[in-house]
Design a protein around this nucleic acid. Structure first.
Length: 886
RNA sequence: GGGCGGAUAGCUCAGCCGGGAGAGCGUCGGCCUUACAAGCCGAAGGUCACAGGUUCGAUCCCUGUUCCGCCUACCA
């Protein structure tokens, strides 16, 4: 493309749309599973089909995209597998709400039509998040997009279910589970969110049948007493040792229930009496099993009291609580009511209070699967980064309980089990059996329940690649390189993928798990609709551009710390993107073609210096990205581009580019400038893909997309060049010193100054002589005189740098008081440092015990500080002299 | 109840292996200098939460305390 001039300010909108289309149209995101290159795969954490892009997605996918683009530049064959999750309960809820608005409900429609309705909804709205991911610049291989309910993945789900069932790792049974009365489905333990609620502890007396006294129990949920089938005390409890009675009367119900003894009961809690409600409390359920007690379900699936609750039947459970309390009070059986704060479980989808309920459900026996998942991380086959999350992972897996996988909803993978009306046998199979395998009866009905959404998600790394077929994709890309995820789904998803991957693929699903932080609002609050503090990534993108937004996310993605997002921060990085744009704009005003780099020895100092810095920035960026230190990489690039390329290099080569030096110098700098811009664009591309692609195409001598470019090899442009870095450092110090004088002394910027320079060493002298034009230009001097140490111009301001002492004669405009103040301030700093260093050198222990290199370094510092101190104070004395003389 | 993370400049945060405290924003002063005022130049600002300990040396390692945040758990 031609190097037409760039617009004055960067306008992201049109550029982003154009290049994204270009990338897609040219197949630049496509994974090449048949190529021989090194495979690098990431599977996307599939967003819910109901999802709209939020900050969490934005961070998660930006980081993945950075890694994918980086690995492509490094020459890997990259597969970024995209897709969405059917999100059983969430999606069903959305469609049910829609039906409600239309004045109907799913029961009126019936299962088949309802499910068709959900598919229709998905076809219409389910692609929203995909479009949004594209606006983020996500370079997923969209042609391979999968959905957890699509044909292939559903087949994988059935296969896994059947296999686990055959292996005895899936079973069905009547257990107490978490029930959401609103969603009307079972929930896994994980799907229950505990929240501390201020409630009451009710002390209720259960009288003995023969009257007189009784046992007082304490409960936070008095309504469940209607379903009590025993009262338990601790066998060690002295208070109940010699108890004559073997039973009590359950108040309100007037049922006689036994007194049992069980070690579970905590003697110190309440009165030491525990009511046992096996159908509505997991602990009581266990006690009932030990003591062979019956269960009585008094709360129905809709959260209302059941027929078993007698005259309370039909009441809402919380209404019932009030009624029970009232009646107990009236009966004089409520002995005390004590305020009590306790955890109450809520449905993670709809926030309804969960009801522990007795129910027949399907479970996965997780222990054997968990053991393998633990071992894989212990043995380092999968690394968790940052490592601190490994402890959390182990803790959960080591205490894992069986996983309730059946859900009483309609949207999901229907469980592949059929019950025979003839013999009652349950057949589990991949496809519907025509006849009962036991008795040959044809009357088979499929299990109504569907599987937990996370069941299919757990297969994601291999199901998306075509498992159970042995595909080329699986061969090349499994195990995947890394899973990038938030810690909130470490258990829901990551641990379960580990279990399933190891069990069915005999290999870990990913070599690394990178756990990133949560995105919070400015105040560190979790963003939520109810709090109204949600920042919409798409609005941010509209206002500031995708690149600025992505760079912000990367810059704040420090390991182990949450990202606090605010628009202001994005604004700051928009400035950075604009800075790059303008630097390129400047460069492209001069660079008309690609030039090969001349031999290093022929280059000017500034050229060698920027190449050395580029080399360092390259190495540092690669190192940081390889270690998932996104913020380090971002900070490195920010500082390099802004403070080295723009602040120093471009300024340094301006005279050459403007033809104020000879043609050869211009040619040399043009070659270096091309190289710096070229390589820098590549380094930046993973973070800010759009603006870099745009500039890339304006840069002469590039071909095709920057996505096809090669990440600069270390030392390719220039080897490490500490000499150039040090020499340039000397000049920078001199220039900064003069600028400091100008600023501090209030000298108008327009006024050209003269400087008298005393170099410290012959080397510095040569350096400064050679680069007097550079110094004069950047420090705005009209003349530089290089002299020996003896000469001290009168009425001048001074600065002392490691390479030279600089005097700026100010003549009539000098303000002696101001210069004194300036020097005294400087001396004060030196004194402080000198004191610290001197103290160290006077410490015998330090000299004896510290590493030799450290001691040498401190001595050197000491020497330098002494010299500087000497010069500064000499100059201060001189100023005082002049001052009093004038 | 158990566990984890945080406390560093006015704000938001970096600081890997212990050896002279950094950035961005904000503030102050000066500049429309021919890429960029979304910019340039200069400056100010910190007992690295507190108390001990280890060490020649601690923002960094150890112990304890305080204050925040999070995760986890079947004490009714």
């Amino acid at each position: 493309m031609s190097s037409d001039t760039l617009e004055k300010g960067y306008e992201p909108r049109e550029v982003e749309r154009r290049w994204y289309e270009f990338w897609e149209a040219n197949g630049l995101f496509a994974a090449r599973e048949h190529d021989s290159g090194r495979g690098y795969a990431i599977v996307i954490p599939p967003p819910n089909v109901t999802g709209v892009l939020h900050m969490g997605h934005a961070l998660n996918n930006t980081l993945q995209d950075i890694l994918c683009r980086y690995r492509r530049l490094r020459g890997d064959d990259v597969l970024w597998m995209p897709g969405t999750d059917h999100a059983g309960i969430a999606t069903q809820n959305v469609v049910e709400r829609k039906l409600a608005q239309e004045g109907t409900d799913r029961h009126a429609l019936g299962r088949e039509r309802f499910v068709a309705e959900v598919w229709a909804w998905r076809a219409k709205f389910g692609g929203a998040i995909i479009h949004q991911l594209k606006r983020l610049g996500a370079s997923c291989d969209w042609a391979r997009e999968r959905f957890t309910m699509d044909e292939g993945l559903s087949r994988a789900v059935r296969k896994v279910f059947v296999d686990l069932h055959q292996q005895g790792l899936i079973y069905r049974g009547l257990y107490i589970i978490n029930w959401c009365p609103r969603c009307r489905t079972a929930l896994a333990d994980l799907e229950v969110e505990h929240e501390e609620i201020d409630g009451n502890l009710y002390h209720i007396r259960y009288p003995f049948p023969q009257g007189g006294g009784g046992i007082t129990v304490a409960t936070t949920r008095p309504e469940t007493m209607l379903g009590d089938t025993a009262v338990a005390v601790n066998p060690e409890d002295e208070r109940y040792r010699g108890l004559a009675a073997a039973s009590v009367i359950l108040p309100l119900m007037n049922r006689e229930i036994p007194i049992i003894r069980d070690g579970y009961v905590d003697m110190s809690f309440g009165t030491g009496g525990l009511k046992v409600t096996p159908a509505h409390d997991p602990n009581d359920f266990e006690i009932a099993r030990r003591h062979d007690l019956p269960s009585l379900k008094v709360i129905d699936d809709d959260g209302r009291m059941s027929a078993a609750a007698g005259r309370f039947a039909g009441l809402d459970r919380f209404e019932c609580r009030k009624r029970v309390v009232r009646e107990l009070t009236a009966a004089g059986l409520l002995e005390r009511t004590v305020p009590h704060r306790h955890g109450v479980g809520h449905c993670y989808r709809c926030k309804e209070a969960v009801e522990p309920n007795l129910s027949r459900q399907w479970f996965v026996r997780t222990k054997p699967l968990a053991e393998k998942a633990i071992a894989a991380v212990k043995e380092g086959r999968t690394r968790i980064i940052p490592e601190t999350w490994a402890a959390t992972y182990f803790d959960w897996l080591e205490n894992i309980r069986d996983w309730c996988i059946s859900r009483q909803i309609w949207w999901g993978h229907q469980i592949p089990a059929w019950t025979c009306a003839g013999c009652g046998e349950v057949a589990v199979a991949m496809e519907a059996p025509g006849v009962c395998p036991q008795c040959g009866d044809r009357r088979l009905t499929q299990e109504e329940d569907v599987l937990d959404t996370w069941f299919s998600s757990a297969l994601w790394p291999f199901s998306t690649m075509g498992w159970p077929e042995a595909t080329a994709l699986l061969k090349k890309f499994y195990p995947t390189a890394v899973l990038v995820t938030g810690f909130d789904i470490l258990f829901f998803w990551v641990a379960r993928m580990m279990m399933m991957g190891l069990h069915f693929m005999q290999a870990v699903p990913f070599r690394d798990v990178y756990v990133h932080a949560l995105v919070r609002d400015e105040e560190g609050q979790k963003m939520s609709k109810s709090k109204g503090n949600v920042i919409d990534p798409l609005e941010i993108i509209d206002r500031h551009g995708t690149d600025a937004f992505r760079f912000t996310l990367a810059a704040f993605a420090a390991q182990g710390r949450d990202v606090k997002m605010s628009e202001k921060r994005v604004e700051g990085y928009r400035h950075f993107v604009n800075k790059i744009w303008n630097a390129a704009r400047f460069a492209l005003m001069h660079v008309d073609r690609r030039r090969d780099l001349p031999p290093l020895a022929e280059l000017d100092l500034a050229d060698r210096w920027i190449l050395a810095r580029l080399n360092r920035a390259t190495a540092e960026t690669a190192r940081a990205l390889d270690a998932y230190r996104f913020n380090d990489a971002a900070a490195t690039l920010y500082a390099f581009v802004w403070h080295e390329v723009c602040d120093w290099y471009l300024e340094a080569v301006k005279p050459a580019l403007h033809g104020k030096r000879d043609d050869a110098a211009k040619e040399r700098s043009l070659a270096v400038l091309w190289r710096v811009l070229h390589d820098t664009l590549i380094l930046l591309h993973p973070f800010i893909p759009f603006v870099t692609e745009e500039i890339w195409h304006k840069l002469p001598g590039t071909e095709g997309s920057i996505m096809r470019a090669a990440f600069p090899a270390e030392g390719a442009a220039a080897p490490h060049d500490p000499a150039a870095e040090e020499e340039m450092g000397v000049l920078i110090e001199v220039i900064s010193g003069i600028r400091n004088i100008r600023g501090e002394m209030g000298i108008p910027p327009g006024m050209a100054l003269e400087a008298v320079v005393h170099p410290m060493t012959p080397g510095a002298r040569g350096l400064i002589e050679t680069h007097r034009d550079l110094i004069a230009n950047l420090a705005r001097l009209r003349e530089i005189r290089i002299t020996d140490a003896g000469e001290r111009p009168k009425a001048s301001a001074t600065c002392v740098t490691p390479g030279a002492t600089v005097f700026v004669p100010l003549g009539a405009i000098i303000d002696f008081a101001r210069e004194r103040e300036r020097l005294e301030k400087e001396l004060g700093k030196i004194d402080k440092e000198l004191a610290a260093v001197t103290k160290k050198l006077q410490n015998q222990d330090f000299l004896a015990k510290a590493a030799a290199a450290v001691v040498a370094k401190v001595r050197e510092q000491h020497q330098g500080l002494l010299e500087k101190h000497g010069k500064l104070s000499a100059n201060l004395d001189r100023i005082k002299e002049y001052d009093s003389a004038s």
